[in-house]
């Protein structure tokens, strides 16, 4: 009987603790959401409301003025593609190709920054997925000379801080004439070995018999990869795709070092540069922040499931 009371008391205590922890977590969750709420509402507040010493918790009316100010600040062409602009000497003959630039209509710089950011994130995502899938497949399924060394190099590189290579990278990009182009940001993202590591783990889970059966049936190595291996590691590739997309969107340090001219900035870099110019016009800054963060948050919410999978898969045996 006494024992029963003791158990009841214990159950009650653990129930009270559970309720207490839920309440605390809900409160903390609101605090985590608050900055985002503050960005989204701040973007639509009037200047008076933003600079009020008593915070305005909800805008009395939603105004577009901050977005209009943001858009009128600077302008840039919507896109520009340049072809040529180089010369070679072949057997004493000089072949030169004049530079042709195709430029889009002039639009507010923020629009161009969004175009740049999307282009950068999508391109790095596609190249990363293809190269990582190919490399991950052979690292998992083939036994070849140098495989062990290669894989340890990949793991070591991953453990080192990415930022320390930025100085040499900057000089390299200048030498390659890629400095202040979006490629200077894309190439290092593609070279970062996390994707290979992730897809190697994933490919190891696929039975080797599948690959061998395919070989016996006379399929070429390339066919084996595209028709058998790739469809089977597709969930892993999906996780990697969304992971690369979100991370490259927010890879601020690299963008800061590599991109300088107004037309080449990314959206977060653009907001950062505006912050340096008008540091207390929080209305414009909130509008810019909303523009930079809302698209990526939507992408995250849609593909959330794959994203969390990408994070956890990378950690297994990490």
């Amino acid at each position: 009987m006494n024992n029963q009371n003791h158990l009841d008391a214990q159950a009650a205590r653990s129930k009270a603790y559970t309720i207490f922890s839920y309440v605390v977590i809900i409160i903390i969750a609101f605090l985590f959401l608050f900055p985002l709420y503050w960005i989204l509402t701040g973007a639509f507040k009037t200047k008076q409301e933003i600079l009020a010493t008593t915070p305005v918790w909800w805008p009395s009316e939603f105004v577009k003025i901050n977005f209009e100010n943001l858009m009128s600040k600077r302008s840039a062409p919507l896109f520009d593609i340049s072809i040529g602009g180089w010369a070679v000497n072949l057997f004493g003959y000089r072949f030169s190709f004049a530079k042709y630039v195709i430029a889009g209509p002039t639009v507010p710089a923020a629009m161009r920054w969004l175009v740049n950011t999307v282009f950068m994130a999508v391109t790095s995502m596609i190249i990363t997925c293809i190269t990582s899938a190919m490399a991950g497949y052979v690292l998992a399924k083939k036994r070849f000379w140098g495989r062990g060394i290669l894989f340890s190099l990949i793991v070591c590189a991953m453990a080192l801080p990415k930022q320390v290579i930025l100085i040499p990278l900057l000089r390299e990009m200048s030498a390659l004439k890629l400095y202040d182009t979006i490629w200077a940001v894309i190439f290092p993202i593609v070279g970062w070995p996390f994707g290979v590591f992730l897809l190697k783990q994933f490919a190891e889970g696929i039975p080797t018999e599948m690959v061998e059966a395919c070989r016996i049936d006379g399929a070429s190595e390339w066919r084996t990869f595209t028709d058998v291996m790739f469809p089977m590691i597709k969930p892993g590739v999906g996780a990697l795709a969304i992971f690369t997309f979100i991370n490259s969107w927010n890879d601020y340090f690299m963008q800061l070092v590599m991109l300088t001219s107004t037309k080449n900035l990314t959206i977060s870099l653009g907001i950062a540069s505006m912050q340096a110019e008008n540091s207390t016009d929080f209305g414009i800054l909130m509008a810019g922040s909303a523009l930079a963060s809302v698209p990526i948050i939507i992408v995250f919410l849609i593909f959330q499931k794959y994203f969390t999978k990408g994070i956890t898969m990378g950690a297994v045996k990490g």
Partner: peptide, 27 residues
């Protein structure tokens, strides 16, 4: 096997060596 494996590794290795390993060495 080694030859085909390196062919498959090649696209990744170009970026990895060029934009990660080489800068690390240069650092």
């Amino acid at each position: 096997e080694t030859a085909t494996s390196y062919l498959f590794m090649l696209p990744f290795m170009i970026f990895f060596v060029g934009f990660v390993l080489y800068p690390m060495f240069m650092c």
